[in-house]
Simulated scan of single mutants.
Amino acid sequence: MTMTAYTIFFGDGEHAFKLTPAVIGELETKCGSGIGMIANRLFSRNFAQADVTETIRLALIGAGTPPKRAHEFIVAYVDGRPLIETYELAAKILERVLFGNPSETKGT
């Protein structure tokens, strides 16, 4: 699975987010569901808080942020904030995993 990182302003600057196969497994464990079900819950707005926070935390780690720093980002910029503020980021991360980057062309 090849996937480019999704880069956007988050918290204190531009950060990359990428769910690699290894962190997808961890996300599935943390959220108690497969990646498709997690995405379905987010896309239909029937999500749990862990669906949002763990998607963001693990995508930071998947893109190269050290785990301790990723946790610090969650504490500083996700925990205690209205969920809608971070819901859209989590949905975009999962959208990239499922559908790829719309600006990339596929080679034939």
Results as ranks from 00 to 15, higher is better:
Met1Leu: 06
Met1Val: 06
Thr2Pro: 07
Thr2His: 12
Thr2Asn: 13
Tyr6His: 15
Thr7Leu: 01
Ile8Thr: 15
Ile8Met: 09
Ile8Gly: 01
Phe10Ile: 04
Phe10Arg: 07
Phe10Gly: 06
Gly11Leu: 02
Asp12Trp: 00
Gly13Val: 08
Gly13Lys: 06
Glu14Tyr: 01
Glu14Asp: 09
His15Asn: 12
His15Asp: 04
His15Val: 07
Ala16Met: 05
Lys18Ile: 00
Lys18Ser: 00
Thr20Ile: 12
Pro21Arg: 14
Pro21Val: 09
Val23His: 04
Val23Ser: 05
Val23Thr: 15
Val23Glu: 08
Ile24Ala: 09
Ile24Gly: 03
Gly25Trp: 00
Glu26Asp: 13
Glu26Ala: 11
Leu27Lys: 06
Glu28His: 12
Glu28Leu: 05
Thr29Gln: 14
Thr29Arg: 15
Lys30Tyr: 08
Lys30Thr: 01
Gly32Glu: 12
Ser33Phe: 13
Ser33Thr: 00
Ser33Cys: 03
Gly34Ile: 00
Ile35Val: 15
Gly36Trp: 10
Gly36His: 12
Met37His: 09
Met37Phe: 07
Ile38Asp: 00
Ile38Asn: 04
Arg41Gln: 12
Phe43Leu: 03
Phe43Met: 08
Phe43Gly: 04
Phe43Asn: 11
Ser44Glu: 15
Ser44Pro: 05
Phe47Met: 02
Phe47Lys: 02
Ala48Asn: 14
Ala48Thr: 14
Asp51Met: 05
Val52Trp: 08
Val52Thr: 02
Leu58Pro: 03
Ala59Gly: 08
Leu60Lys: 07
Leu60His: 06
Leu60Arg: 11
Ile61Asn: 02
Ala63Pro: 07
Ala63Gly: 09
Gly64Glu: 06
Lys68Pro: 00
Arg69Cys: 01
Ala70Met: 06
Ala70Pro: 02
Ala70Cys: 06
His71Thr: 15
Phe73Glu: 13
Ile74Thr: 08
Val75Lys: 13
Val75Pro: 03
Tyr77Leu: 03
Tyr77Asn: 12
Tyr77Arg: 03
Val78Asp: 08
Asp79His: 04
Asp79Trp: 00
Arg81Cys: 03
Pro82Leu: 05
Leu83Ser: 09
Ile84Gly: 01
Glu88Lys: 11
Leu89Phe: 03
Leu89Met: 12
Ala90Ile: 04
Ala90Trp: 04
Ala90Thr: 02
Ala91Phe: 05
Ala91Lys: 15
Lys92Trp: 03
Lys92Val: 02
Lys92Gln: 13
Ile93Val: 15
Leu94Tyr: 07
Glu95Phe: 10
Val97Phe: 11
Leu98Ile: 08
Leu98Thr: 05
Phe99Val: 11
Phe99Trp: 10
Gly100Tyr: 02
Asn101Met: 09
Asn101Tyr: 03
Ser103Met: 15
Glu104Pro: 05
Glu104Leu: 14
Glu104Gly: 03
Thr105Asp: 07
Lys106Tyr: 00
Lys106Phe: 00
Gly107Ser: 12
Gly107Glu: 10
Thr108Gly: 14
Thr108Ala: 14
Thr108Leu: 12
